[in-house]
Write a protein that binds this DNA or RNA. Structure first.
Lengths: 353, 353
DNA sequence: CTGAAAGCGCTAACAG
DNA sequence: CTGTTAGCGCTTTCAG
């Protein structure tokens, strides 16, 4: 069963020729080098032995690796799956892409990056790297950063237009009359999350509104965490007249919705909820979630294109992928209120749909 | 910037020693071999040059690869992300795992498998391989199959207990009075889906009920496909008195729910819906979906364990991971009906929640 | 047209 | 204790 994998030497011995001949034949550069008879015999032997060249050895010899590594924090998040898909498709003609994620926990550390670097890879893509990782990072091959605003290393980046995303969301909420908005954050030190919150806050303030942070930010990107952080913060928010909550990511928003429902709040009657990312499930939950579409597939494609350019020495500094706000039923008009502070005592129970 | 990666030779030259010395030092086997002074100087040079051994070259030399490849159909499906996570964690002490997926399309072909095999890998894990792939497959290293019932090659397998899953679901539906159940299938030639449907049908029949296939099975695992197939089949189902629909996967069930709602059907009042997989979002949609939990993380862990065993020559034939039925609001009592056939003409519109 | 030889970066015997 | 040698599987000059 575990037939030892055939090597070029095996083929050569079977045919009675040299290894170089089989090398030429399998790589198809037979033109004017190998006569047709020999070629046919080699090809037959290749078939028979099911020989396929050892890619690692080939890479070692040619110094032209055939795969690029994609490192991301958590592949369970459908967002990264979609990014991976776009990336993979856009480089498929020339490279295979292999995914690397932390074996456990919430985010990748420098170790995962170094593991990837220690293989022979043509390029490296780092998705949403933490500042901790970037401090320790040393480039050893063409590298592209994805979703890494604030990282001022000279590396090519592909970022989302988070400013327009946040601004769009803010304007929507402002137009609906929201002046006090709770914010459920995640990884407050990671560039992409810093920026989301920042632009949202700026835009809200320009509209004369305020962002109120949750008591604590989510430690993990799970529904449960979103739920727990919401419960923890709700008293504080309620006392300060919060009429809408924005979550740093849809998954947390799901948790917020669940918690709000459990607390007997009607959405959006008593509380509006919105998120970032717009993963496909956001349109299906109850109520459908207002969210900013991050165009994950495009992001992956852009990363692939940037990678190819970088490998070819035409490094692009920064690519920006646009985002799109999707308005759904989870956001609605703010409950009318009089002063800047209101005591939303109890709940005037509208049927929680 | 793109400082050429340092090699063992570079380190040796800087220190003025042989490459073997640095090899011994970096791999920590310095005991009684290298004197402390030399060791320290080498370590200093390693630091200075930021030397890290080329893993591919090391593998080539030692013939003991350090990573295992995981091939799966579609990483956008959170199920596989979770499996990957479990797998990754369970082999972390000894191996890194790298993911391989098709660059586009819905399923991996033999090409993806061969790409993986052509690297130096310690093991290969194939998730839900199609029969087409398995026909062409030739093992070149320890291989473990995941979710591959019906594949009678002599390879170690990790499967779900699909029989108890389907039986549990059937019994639930039977108890609720359902006698005509629509079935929304996906990839009807892939082992895992064949088996899901089969056991469901058998269990339904034992209870005197029938499974009615959709007009066509879903070509892709997306909400849209589920929706389209439902619409297409609903007339047929309705005419035959179908009171519940089971989807081969939760994602399709989401589509069915959306379609049913659009058709003005109340769930579960007029139609019950259930799925397989129980991805985390299933508890959040409206209405929450009754589904069979596939324990993705455990499945991944089991695959990791089976892999380790196989590598160590103690191949396990088959590992079965249990499943668990989660009852939620999407399933309820069948609308009372008189004969085996009922004309559910129109819709007595109960408010679609 | 074809084979022998060198070398990619590393490790593992074996001498000194 | 340390360096030299050989070789992992492949590609690539360079002679013949």
């Amino acid at each position: 069963m575990k037939t030892k994998r055939a090597t070029a030497k095996d083929v050569a011995e079977l045919v009675g020729c040299s290894v170089s001949a089989v090398s030429l034949v399998v790589s198809g550069r037979t033109e004017g080098r190998i006569n047709n008879d020999l070629r046919d015999r080699i090809e037959a032997a290749v078939q028979e032995l099911d020989y396929r060249p050892n890619q690692s050895a080939r890479t070692l010899a040619t110094r032209s690796p055939s795969n690029i590594a994609f490192v991301c924090p958590d592949i369970r998040n459908p967002f990264f799956g979609e990014v991976f898909h776009g990336l993979s498709a856009s480089v498929a003609a020339q490279y295979r892409v292999q995914l690397r994620v932390p074996s456990s926990g919430l985010d990748f550390g420098i170790d995962v990056v170094r593991d990837a670097q220690s293989e022979n890879i043509a390029g490296l893509i780092l998705a949403a790297p933490s500042s901790g990782v970037m401090e320790l990072f040393r480039s050893t091959c063409p590298t592209v950063l994805l979703e890494a605003p604030d990282q001022t290393l000279g590396l090519p980046c592909v970022d989302l237009n988070l400013e327009s995303a946040a601004k769009g969301l803010a304007q929507h909420l402002l137009a609906m009359g929201h002046r006090r908005v709770g914010y459920l954050s995640y990884q407050p030190k990671k560039g992409t999350f810093v920026v989301r919150r920042h632009h949202l806050e700026v835009a809200m303030q320009e509209g004369g509104a305020h962002l109120l942070d949750a008591i604590a930010s989510a430690g993990e990107l799970t529904i449960e965490e979103g739920e727990a952080r919401f419960f923890e913060s709700w008293k504080h928010w309620k006392e300060n007249g919060v009429t809408a909550v924005v979550a740093a990511d849809d998954i947390l928003a799901y948790g917020a919705i669940r918690a709000a429902k459990k607390a007997g709040l009607h959405i959006p009657g008593q509380l509006s909820v919105a998120g970032f990312n717009d993963i496909p499930f956001s349109a299906l939950i109850a109520p459908p979630l207002t969210s900013v579409d991050f165009r994950a597939y495009e992001l992956g494609q852009a990363a692939g294109a940037a990678m190819i350019n970088t490998i070819n020495g035409r490094a692009t500094n920064l690519t920006v992928v646009e985002t799109e706000l999707h308005l759904r039923a989870s956001t609605g008009a703010a409950t009318p209120l009089k002063g800047p502070k209101r005591r939303a005592s109890g709940t005037s129970s509208a049927p929680a749909v």
